[in-house]
Structures are given as structure tokens and as C-alpha cells.
Design a protein around this nucleic acid. Structure first.
Lengths: 246, 246
DNA sequence: GCGAAATATGCGGGATCCCGCAAGACAATC
DNA sequence: GATTGTCTTGCGGGATCCCGCATATTTCGC
């Protein structure tokens, strides 16, 4: 084994076409890479990462068997210095937030959209794997700021309660889960409704367009991509875990 | 123009890789096809279909600008004999049901998963475009039967009320929309809760796992892929239209 | 330390939701 | 026609949700 330039890259990606495209891109961008592993979903990817002690991973977020965020979380839990490039179709706030929540202190990672050019992808590959940089696409970055800066975005508490009502919990249950009084939960809910611009227009004549605030909030959160299927899936798993512990 | 074998195929697909793969597949499967048009989202696809009077279309369902079901609906509304092959990643009940709802009487169409083999895709292309057959993948077919046969599936009324609570409407509003009494709406809701296996387990000790049935129903419907983002998006559009008319 | 602002909690009432009970409407079957 | 089954509607009550008002607690800047 020559001391210079030996490197292994693991690709975790649902779609065969995208997988082979990624494979080519990795080969082209990283001549020092001598082996490329491929996994077709998160579960298999986790296994391969563990088995090969993979240090360089590029993965999709939206996968059927086990989505990218779950896989990344367990991988990072075992080896926090793993470098991961997320290569996704979308910059939904749910994804961006999900990633931000799990990236370990000081880890090198990236978030590049599939719609990005070849060059952007290759630059990101080199930046993260060779230079330990963090490379985040502009579109994603914009979402991140809107998400964290609470100008128009949502604080973590608001987000958590949003998840809880999306899961269908009662106020009382949420209170217990978040260690709050019932009234506080309701307070936060109102806060949330306001930010989501959800309100019952009890029209002057008494029966204008009228929503169930709780359900409506979940609805617009979905439409605004604040939450999506995979976020819900993860939240459901966490809830069940908590219910088990309790 | 020779009287034999002149044919135009329109491809509507988000992803460049998939688009070019489709292009190749069409060329290979249909030598009688002399022109292939490409559109990168539903909106553009609709325009091209209208402009070229496209009779043969293959399209993705999940697209950003305007999803496949919406596009297909307007296309079929203008020319119901258009032959459309849906080529999708998923067989979510929401998609399958959405397609079944819009396919015109006696139209030739197909539903093939992206995970299918080259041969399956090519067979479907020839079957639909040349032989006017309906070609539906086995996995999708299974979903369709489960959906229509009410063994474990949902009737249309149940599905409609599910959509309505997913949109966040109140009982009263739903009643008005469906032309029902308030009590009937609540009846159907209970029917829905039962089928979704959603119930408040007011545990023996009084405070066991407890859900808000309405929100929880939406939640599990999402997790079971009875509804998904694009279904919600469509429903929201229809709701706004109705609100405008009213 | 000390106000100010944000957040958490309690109380209470009106609206909505969940649902058992029962009576009428309609269709299908015998 | 009688019966059975499904669907609809009304009534009523208990639980939950939505939210205004008031008080405590925490957080932050100075």
C-alpha cells in the first residue's frame, strides 16, 4: 500500500442511474480514490460503513428502506469524524433541519442538490473529502439561515411542538413529553398557529372559511415543506421509543 | 411523410439522467418513432402536449413545478385518447388512486415502476403505444386492488373525508362541502378512525398513550402513504377553487 | 443588583370534537 | 310486503381544544 493516496468512498443511493453517475463523478473528481463501494439503501449502507470503517460517504436522503438522515445519525454516532456528502433532490426545510440536527461538532460534511452541475458536485467531493471543508449549496444555505435565524423561521421549541401535533398527540401527552404544563403547551401552540398564519376566520356573518387549527397547522406545515414524510417517519420512531421507555 | 410508422413521443420527466435513459429506451423499443420531445416538468409538458397534439406520452409523477397527475388530467381533458405511460418511483396508494381517478373511459395507459427492468419498460412502451393495451406493474396492480376492493382498503367516501381532515377543515365545513349533516360527517370520521386503527387508548390507569384522533388519523394516513405531498397539494388547490366558487 | 421582556403556569369559559343511543330513508333480498 | 342492512340525521353529554386574563418564573441587558 503506497503511503500516498489510498482512499475508499462509499456511495449510498437508491437509484441505479444516480448511483452509477455518482460512481463516475467520484472516480473523475478523486483520482486518489482506489475503491468505491455502493449500497442501495440506508440499511445496507450502514452495514457497509461499519464493516469497512468508511471515512468518506456520499448519500442520498430520500431512500425507501432507511432514509439518509437515520443512516447518517447512526454512522456519525459510531465515528463522528466520518465525512458525509448529502446529495439530494430537494432542499426542504425538513431535510435541512434534520441534517443540521445530527451533524457532530466540527465534522466535515456537505449538502449538494442533484440539480447542481457536474462541477459543483466534483468541487464538493474534493472540498469535503480532501480538504475537510463544509460545502453547502447556496439554495440549501438560504434555507438554513431562514430556518435558524428566526426572522421568518421557526425556533426549535416551535418545531418540536409542530412535530408533536403532526404525530397526533394530545395536549396532555405533549405536556408530559416536553415536561411542560398543559397551559404552556397551549401557549406554544398559539405561537405556532400565528407563525403559520393559521387562524379561524369566524367571518362576520358567522360561518366563513373555518379551520380546525391543529389539523390545519399540520397541513400548511406539510405544504410549506416544514415537515415531510421522512421527518414524520423519524418522529414516529422516536415517539415509539419514548413510549417504550416511559 | 410515409404512411407507415411515423410517431411522436413526448417525455415529461424531472431528472436529466432519467430523461435521457427514457429517451434511449423509447428509441430502442419503438423504431417507428421518429421524434422524441422532452419536457422537464409538468407545466412545460402540458404546453408541448397541446402544441404538438401529442398522442404518446411517458411521464413521471413526482415533479416539482407541476406534478404528473395534474398534468395528465388537463392533457386527458383536452384529448381523452392520449396514451400515457406513468413511470414512477413509488406505488403509493395516493398515487395509484390519483391516477385511477383521472384515467378516461377506455383510454390506454400504463403504470410502471422505475425499479422495473429495461425489458419491462420496453414491453410496456410497445404495449401501450402500439397495441393500445393497459400495462400496469404487478406491484401497482396489487395496490389498486387493495384500494378498490374494500377488504382492507378505503371506499371513496372514506378517502374524501380523510382528505378533508388532512386539509384541516372543521366538521361543519366538511358537512357543507360534502352536502351532509354534521352528524353524518362525524359518523364517517368514526368509520375512518376504525379503519385506520386509530383509537384513544384511555388506559386502565387513566393516562396511557392518548391521541387526538383527528390529527392522528392524518398522521397514520401519511405514514401508510394513503396520502402524500402531491395529493395534499392537489386537494388544497381544489379546496381553494371551491372556496372561490362558493 | 434591577428593571424589562420573554416564557411558564393557573383559572375559566365558549367552541369543537368524540361518540352512544335511537329514529327515519333507501336499497337489496327473500 | 316484510326483513335485513347500510346510510343518514338528530339529541345530548363528556372530553378536548382554543384562548383571554392574571400571576409567577426565568432570561437578558445595563
Amino acid at each position: 500500500m503506497s503511503k500516498e493516496a489510498t482512499m475508499e468512498v462509499l456511495i449510498i443511493e437508491d437509484d441505479p442511474l444516480h448511483r452509477s453517475y455518482l460512481h463516475d463523478a467520484v472516480r473523475a473528481a478523486l483520482p486518489e480514490c482506489d475503491t468505491v463501494l455502493e449500497a442501495e439503501n440506508g440499511r445496507i449502507g450502514e452495514g457497509l460503513a461499519r464493516q469497512h470503517r468508511a471515512a468518506h460517504i456520499v448519500m442520498d436522503l430520500q431512500m425507501s428502506e432507511r432514509n439518509g438522515i437515520e443512516a447518517a445519525r447512526t454512522i456519525w454516532k459510531e465515528r463522528p469524524d466520518t465525512r458525509i456528502l448529502f446529495w439530494s433532490n430537494y432542499a426542504d426545510e425538513a431535510y435541512v433541519r434534520g441534517v443540521s440536527r445530527i451533524v457532530p461538532e466540527g465534522a466535515a460534511y456537505g449538502y449538494v442538490l442533484k440539480s447542481a452541475s457536474d462541477d459543483r458536485l466534483k468541487l464538493a467531493l474534493r472540498g469535503i473529502f480532501m480538504e475537510s471543508q463544509c460545502v453547502v449549496d447556496r439554495e440549501v444555505r438560504g434555507m438554513q439561515q431562514k430556518s435558524l435565524g428566526n426572522s421568518h423561521g421557526f425556533t426549535d421549541v416551535e418545531y418540536e411542538i409542530l412535530i408533536d401535533i403532526a404525530l397526533g398527540l394530545t395536549d396532555r401527552m405533549i405536556a408530559r413529553r416536553q415536561n411542560l404544563s398543559l397551559r404552556s403547551v397551549q401557549n406554544r401552540l398559539q405561537q405556532l398557529y400565528e407563525k403559520l398564519d393559521v387562524y379561524q376566520r369566524l367571518g362576520d356573518d358567522g360561518d366563513e372559511g373555518r379551520y380546525n387549527l391543529r389539523s390545519r397547522a399540520v397541513s400548511v406545515a406539510f405544504l410549506r415543506k416544514l415537515i415531510n414524510y421522512s421527518a414524520l417517519e423519524r418522529a414516529e420512531a422516536e415517539l415509539n421509543e419514548w413510549l417504550g421507555i416511559k
